[in-house]
Design a binder for these strands. Structure first.
Lengths: 337, 337
DNA sequence: TTGTATGCGTTATCAA
DNA sequence: TTGATAACGCATACAA
């Protein structure tokens, strides 16, 4: 561990610790000469100011925490990348936590973070329906918090989301226009706001285009890859949909695998479109039609919002909601036969 | 910010701060009764021990730092996921840094981290050839450091890598066995150890199978997506290779795009294999043959190694090197025509 | 412009 | 078993 501290520096220079300390702050009065001497010596001795000491003193950490449902996922990686860029530019560090969709983990992370370890939190909430009130209980002393993508509607704090309802509507409409009559909707997290919104877009599009809504065609998927594939093979065989709209990326992949297995041709037998931020969607077989969310930008925007809260708390309306637009990319997987 | 501290707790309970502090530590002598009283009150008041204060006091942070060349990349996300799992189980937090392959950033991160903010570092080094001696200069006080995947050969510290030489050899051999005679090698980071090793496997396989090595077929790629595609279109047109071996995932994608553009058929005109941890490689058009690195396991192993160093420094040989095996998955993109 | 003294919240040492 | 006190490294109010 680095044991060069301000005291040793001061000793080496025959100065007081306060003078040395001042050299590292911009505002303080200190002669240029002394400052330069100090900085030079600091460099020579490889001095690194102890982060914990200064943060204990200043009561802030120059650190923000990111909580996501999963790492190792294309979408959240991109979002984290976006956040990291902004944070890094501001000289902030990022702590990363993954809940694996376990609500208790989320609560535990959040509570723990209120010990000064982070100045603010950016979170995409965990998948389960639960009592979010733990967030309100932190009340006055709650850290600045920004939701992105997956939010709790009943918690008042800024959020960055995408136009999910419109996107779902458009995606469903797109399938209809490509000739689909029996469109399955592959769901997860139905209890989450984002799940509800997406499903509503689907339902309303059906209504608008006078396609009867069929409850059976809402297929509830799990978090398990293999399970989903089996489940989908069954569903496709039994229900014979001619279109599939997947509410999350990985269900599109599962759909592909299922179709390969039971020899359904995409798009001839089944057209597929899904939410996905996968850069290589055009390389899939067949190229996957997607609703692409601006993942990195979502992260970037959330970070910017959080920094606004940190820098000028009164300036930010807690009810503010930024909506970024996803984009529909029709590709082969929904092309007309 | 949470302002319930040990002092307030003590006040509320009519105890001294030291007694309260003891309640949160296991070893100290304290009556069960008092302890329970304290813990109950702590819960009620929503007390969170200040991390900075205790870490300043204890000189450790229960935090490890991860430095990777890029976020938002399938491979490193998986590795981070692996690390996070281990760290989380140990009650450690993770700080994540992305160098974007900029060496100066790496140096700056590392130096900064030696201020007590992290107890150890797991790093996949940045792409440029440079003077790594900055790591040695930290010498005695250098934080425990574990390299994974991309390492500096001249720095003595534990590392977790994959059997890159063998994998490259096998991949090249596979192409040869599928009938390729003119095999291009798509390179980046030739100066990095990992780049050299992978290329050597390619070269030696050619030699072994008596295929003349042709310098022209080593194609140097950049970090820019579009540039690479253009560059590859040119190269494929001019050099007419019948096989391509990509040393990193994204070059396989670039190859696909290039082939689509100039109407080369994979695998008829050109067989493609590449290093990649993409779970959906089988879904590509055509399904991509890969050398799949156990990314998450790499992260997991690196984390375990780091924790060994943290828990029992003398137990770990700094020269230790763990080699995990990648696996070759032949798929359509290299199938015989 | 520089130095002295104090406190941030915690833990450890020592005394009671 | 509990309490008083010092110290971790730094930053600031105040004094010089």
């Amino acid at each position: 561990m680095d044991n060069v501290n301000i005291k040793k520096l001061a000793q080496a220079l025959n100065l007081s610790t306060s003078t040395v300390s001042r050299a590292f702050r911009d505002n303080s009065d200190i002669s240029k000469e002394t400052k330069e001497r100090i900085l030079a010596m600091a460099k020579e001795m490889n001095y690194q100011p102890n982060h914990y000491a200064s943060n204990l003193r200043e009561q802030k950490s120059k650190t923000i925490a990111i909580i996501v449902p999963e790492l190792g996922n294309n979408y959240f990686s991109l979002a984290i990348q976006g956040i990291e860029k902004v944070a890094s530019a501001k000289g902030y560090h990022i702590l990363v936590y993954s809940t694996n969709d376990q609500f208790e983990k989320e609560v535990s992370f959040i509570k723990h973070l209120h010990n000064g370890r982070a100045d603010g939190i950016i979170m995409s909430v965990s998948g389960e329906a639960n009592d979010h009130n733990y967030l309100n209980e932190l009340s006055k002393k709650r850290l600045p918090l920004v939701f992105f993508d997956r939010v709790y509607e009943d918690i008042i704090t800024p959020r960055v989301i995408t136009n999910d309802y419109d996107s779902s509507f458009s995606a469903t409409k797109h399938l209809i226009q490509q000739g689909c009559k029996r469109i399955a909707y592959l769901a997860v997290n139905k209890t989450l706001s984002i799940g509800k919104t997406r499903m509503q877009g689907y339902i309303d599009a059906l209504k608008k285009f006078k396609i009867p809504f069929n409850d059976e065609l809402i297929i509830d998927c799990t978090n398990n890859y293999k399970e989903n594939i089996e489940l989908l093979k069954q569903a496709f065989t039994n229900l014979k949909p001619d279109g599939v709209f997947t509410s999350v990326e990985r269900l599109a992949f599962a759909t592909y695998y299922a179709c390969y297995d039971i020899k359904l041709s995409i798009p001839d037998d089944l057209k597929v479109i899904g939410f996905s931020s996968l850069a290589i969607a055009p390389l899939l077989n067949p190229a996957l039609s997607t609703i692409t969310q601006p993942a990195a930008e979502l992260g970037k925007t959330a970070a910017e919002l959080l920094f606004k809260m940190l820098e000028n708390p009164s300036d930010v309306d807690l009810k503010s909601e930024v909506i970024l637009n996803s984009k529909l990319y029709p590709r082969e997987s929904t092309s007309k036969v």
